[in-house]
């Protein structure tokens, strides 16, 4: 037998032996896994955002099947997929409204005052405890992009204007940015609403006015305009509670132009045009 043939036999034999071992192992060491786990994993969006509280989509699928976790924790999940998961599990799925993150601040580098030059880490947490990165408004967006860095789908832009803006078309509503913002500016809101109030400053009007051209000064005109339906005051700040749709006329009512119209279902616009210089 030539050395060539013997090599073929040895390698081939070793391969066959290993294949046989693997076959035996697969038979005897088989771990039963509910097929539904794989099915549900495939139905989930696969972004592995962790917004449901589990370590990724596969982990959540296992939790649904094995621990009986609620099926509707996944906010990025499409309605059809959710219905399918509910059918697999034999439960009734409460339909979830699509939620989209929105940054409740509209004070970019032009509209909001910065009193100092900031030299330091380009990180919101770090800037927040270093005098707010020079931003006069103590509750506005710092613009160093901690939210953008955690976003699994790259839906947040921040760089040019030092203001984070969520692209609602890309946003899957996982909520990671909500947790990343040291100033708690980001909120998940139902995607059906079009009128938003982009300010989170709870300080008195006098203080806010000094800091920002588009800050809420607590004049309460908006609350009166809607008769308290859908907007309420929290200290010196008007807050939209997203229970009823708001009229577009609010955009003109607000003297500070805090309200913007932004459809969260359509691809949205990058920073709104500046109403005041």
């Amino acid at each position: 037998m030539s050395p060539f043939l013997s090599a073929v036999f040895v390698i081939g034999g070793a391969g066959a032996a290993c294949a046989a071992l693997l076959a035996v192992a697969a038979r005897f060491l088989h771990v039963f896994e509910d097929p539904r786990v794989e099915a549900i994993t495939n139905l989930l969006p696969g972004a592995n955002c962790g917004g449901c509280g589990y370590a990724g989509c596969a982990d959540y699928a296992r939790a649904i099947v094995e621990k009986g976790a609620p099926v509707n924790l996944c906010r990025p999940c499409a309605a059809a997929a959710l219905a399918e998961i509910a059918r697999l599990m034999g439960v009734e799925a409460k339909p979830v409204e699509k939620m989209v993150a929105i940054v409740r601040c509209n004070g970019d580098a032009v509209r909001s005052r910065r009193a100092a030059l900031y030299h330091g880490l380009a990180d919101c947490v770090a800037a927040d405890f270093t005098g707010g990165g020079g931003k006069v408004c103590r509750e506005g967006c710092l613009g160093y992009g901690n939210c953008a860095r955690v976003c699994p789908v790259g839906a947040i832009t921040f760089q040019e204007s030092l203001l984070a803006v969520v692209n609602p078309e890309r946003c899957i509503g996982c909520g990671l940015c909500v947790k990343a913002c040291p100033r708690h500016l980001i909120r998940l809101v139902p995607a059906g609403h079009e009128i938003h109030l982009l300010c989170s400053n709870r300080e008195r009007g006098l203080v806010t006015r000094k800091a920002c051209n588009v800050g809420c000064i607590a004049c309460q005109k908006c609350v009166k305009h809607v008769n308290g339906q859908g907007i309420h005051m929290e200290g010196h700040l008007a807050v939209v509670d997203y229970t009823t749709p708001l009229p577009e006329s609010l955009l003109e009512i607000c003297p500070q132009h805090c309200f913007v119209k932004r459809s969260l279902l359509k691809p949205a616009p990058q920073p709104e045009p500046t109403p005041l210089s």
């Binding site: 910065r114 100092a116 030059l117 900031y118 030299h119 270093t130 005098g131 020079g134």
Partner: peptide
């Protein structure tokens, strides 16, 4: 001229 803000 604005002051400069930076960490210690």
């Amino acid at each position: 001229q604005p002051w400069i803000l930076s960490p210690s």
